[in-house]
């Protein structure tokens, strides 16, 4: 991004102010996340940087809020974490299977009413969550599934499928049909071709869709507010955070938030590896 020597002064000024603006926006994006991390190691129970912390004195830092998160009796973070993982696990499986199969149909050239069906399948992602939440709640209540484990999983499958459909159809749109034709011309059955050729090639897309579905369920708060109906045994991490944040901003929440940031960093690394892998498979050079 170095400027050529002959650049005029005003363009030089413009260029550097552009870089300053960009830096400011990047800071605006990322800094709020990094404010939380040191505060979770605070030894005091107030959410601010104490003088000791700013002077980097070791006694100003502690792990007491992490202990409170794990052993504290007041906050059921343990149940919440277990539930969150369960809901996310089962709804990811449901959403990934349904979404991948549907995406295979939708990517076919012969699919009838493609636009219309696609719009219907994507709608849970577009329609405001408050509307989805209440509609799903009313229908689950009618079936007697409101505030039950299967009910919440069904709700999360609905919210997760659009992401799987989108990522898998995107992967399939770059798919070279001649590969499967070559397989069948060499005598492979359609089932064999699918499992031996198509599936391995679209796996990165499926995994990334599954990750989206997982995160959607793991993060989901609006729909579960309606569907869980205040049952403490069905609570999730986002629900606990929501309740906590409405009462008081406690350092324990900062500790939980830090753990979630670590989790999202892991997800980011996985998606990055997947992207590189899929680019390599398709012969696009990854740097």
């Amino acid at each position: 991004m170095a400027l050529p020597k002959y650049t005029e002064m005003r363009y030089r000024v413009w260029h550097y102010s552009y870089l300053v603006i960009c830096t400011a926006v990047f800071v605006f994006l990322i800094a709020p996340l990094f404010v939380i991390i040191p505060l979770s190691f605070n030894a005091e129970q107030y959410i601010h940087f104490s003088d000791g912390m700013l002077a980097l004195q070791p006694e100003a830092f502690s792990l007491r809020w992490y202990e409170d998160m794990i052993y504290g009796t007041k906050n059921p973070w343990g149940i919440a974490a277990r539930n969150s993982v369960y809901y996310a696990f089962f709804s990811t499986i449901g959403a990934t299977v349904l979404g991948t199969v549907a995406a295979l149909g939708l990517s076919s050239r012969y699919m009838p009413y493609k636009q219309l069906i696609m719009s219907v399948l994507i709608s849970p992602m577009i329609i405001p969550l408050i509307i989805s939440g209440s509609a799903i709640f009313f229908s689950l209540a009618k079936l007697g599934l409101a505030a039950t484990f299967p009910g919440i999983v069904i709700a999360h499958i609905i919210l997760g499928t659009p992401f799987v459909v989108i990522t898998v159809t995107a992967t399939l749109s770059g798919f070279d049909d001649s590969i499967t034709r070559a397989a069948s011309s060499l005598g492979s059955t359609p089932t064999n071709t699918f499992f031996k050729i198509t599936l391995p090639l679209i796996t990165p897309g499926i995994i990334s869709g599954a990750l989206f579905a997982f995160v959607t369920s793991f993060d989901e708060i609006v729909v579960i507010l309606f569907v869980a109906g205040g049952d403490r045994n069905l609570t999730t991490i986002p629900l606990q955070m929501w309740t906590g944040l409405r009462e008081q901003l406690s350092p324990t929440i900062m500790a939980v938030a830090t753990c979630l940031i670590v989790l999202s960093t892991l997800i980011l690394i996985v998606t990055e590896l997947l992207r590189r892998r899929s680019e390599r498979i398709r012969g696009i050079s990854a740097q």
């Binding site: 994006l29 709020p32 404010v35 793991f218 991490i237 955070m241 999202s264 997800i267 980011l268 998606t271």
Partner: peptide, 21 residues
Amino acid sequence: ICVLLPFWTSLLVRTSSWMVL
């Protein structure tokens, strides 16, 4: 990363960080 890390981070984490700020 500056774009994708917030993208993958829980909405409640980001909201609580704004409350802190």
